[in-house]
């Protein structure tokens, strides 16, 4: 008896790539359902535009009827004009690059420190006992609470702003990395022990990948925080950056500039979040979660739920 004939190769689960192709190709109604499902999927991102469009309509109506004061809210048309003016004269790009470069440095440092310390304290019991309590205590200090100290220590230049972003992003990454590492399935650790995997291979191939979904939650929070902290630091003591442009809009009574910068920040924040989500999806596609569930299956499950 050959091994291949004696076992259940391919009987219960066909090769992964084939099942969907053969399953849906045979029936006309399956074709129609697939087409309609694909149309629905394409239309889904447009749903996200409904609320902003409604807001712009309400804004324009408010301005036209005199409900909103243009001295405070400007008009959608003026905001668009200001956006093009700032975009074409290079001011917006210059300030944006200034903010983005601070975020890149600060976030990079926060990510490296949060990941390495989170892995160390999450994995090694002694490091956990020695370091984690102090880190947790420092986490209780709000990010903006560090500003006076950082100005004193590093001055009002880029260094203190980068340090602030690094600190603010470090904590969510550290906390989530630590939790992810500590949450590694005991059974997988036992497996690694049974096969006598070296410690470095356990960390690289078992512990960190197991913690990755949680680590990426921390990264996502940190990315959002980095925009907030960068803008706050620029508003409070900046010479360059989007925060400065925003603050100038207030002090020079230019609501159109203020709102333009706010919209740019919203778009940048959302875009960076989308990048993290895309990375998250790619790196954790092995999970069997609602996130990865085919839309039609999720709908069937939801439809079976009681009201």
């Amino acid at each position: 008896m050959s091994a291949t004939s004696s076992v259940d190769a391919g009987r219960s689960t066909p090769a992964p790539s084939r099942s969907t192709a053969s399953g849906s190709a045979s029936h006309p109604s399956a074709h129609a359902a697939a087409r309609s499902s694909s149309r629905a999927r394409r239309a889904l991102p447009l749903l996200a535009l409904v609320l902003p469009v409604l807001l712009v309509i309400v804004w324009q109506l408010g301005v036209s009827t005199g409900t909103f004061k243009t001295a405070i809210t400007s008009t959608p048309g003026q905001v668009v004009a200001t956006f093009f003016k700032l975009a074409t004269n290079g001011v917006l790009l210059e300030e944006l690059l200034s903010t983005v470069s601070r975020i890149a440095w600060g976030f990079g440092i926060g990510l490296a420190a949060g990941l390495s310390l989170g892995i160390l304290t999450g994995y090694a019991r002694t490091a956990d006992r020695a370091i984690d309590p102090s880190v947790r205590a420092l986490n209780a200090v709000p990010a903006v609470g560090w500003i006076p100290f950082l100005i004193l220590a590093l001055g009002i230049g880029d260094a203190s702003k980068i340090a602030l972003i690094a600190l603010a992003t470090f904590f969510p990454i550290y906390v989530n990395t630590y939790a992810g590492i500590r949450g590694t399935d005991q059974k997988l650790m036992e497996l690694a022990g049974a096969y006598r995997l070296p410690r470095s291979r356990i960390i690289r191939n078992v512990v960190v990948p197991a913690a990755l979904p949680q680590i990426l939650v921390g990264v996502r929070i940190a990315v959002a925080i980095s925009w907030v902290v960068a803008t706050v630091s620029e508003i409070l003591y900046g010479n360059t950056g989007l925060g400065v442009l925003l603050n100038d809009g207030r002090s020079l009574a230019m609501p159109d500039q203020m709102i333009t910068v706010m919209i740019v920040l919203a778009i940048l924040g959302k875009s960076s979040d989308m990048v993290v989500v895309a990375i998250q999806r790619r790196l954790t596609s092995w999970q069997s979660t609602l996130e990865g569930m085919a839309p039609h299956r999720a709908r069937v499950v939801a439809a079976r739920g009681r009201a």
């Binding site: 091994a3 259940d8 190769a9 689960t13 090769a15 069997s288």
Partner: peptide, 21 residues
């Protein structure tokens, strides 16, 4: 993989396998 009859599935992720596989 040949011996256990799973050569064809060498690139599959565990979630794509049945319990027996």
């Amino acid at each position: 993989l040949e011996l256990v009859g799973l050569h064809e599935f060498h690139d599959a992720l565990p979630k794509q396998l049945s319990g027996g596989m």
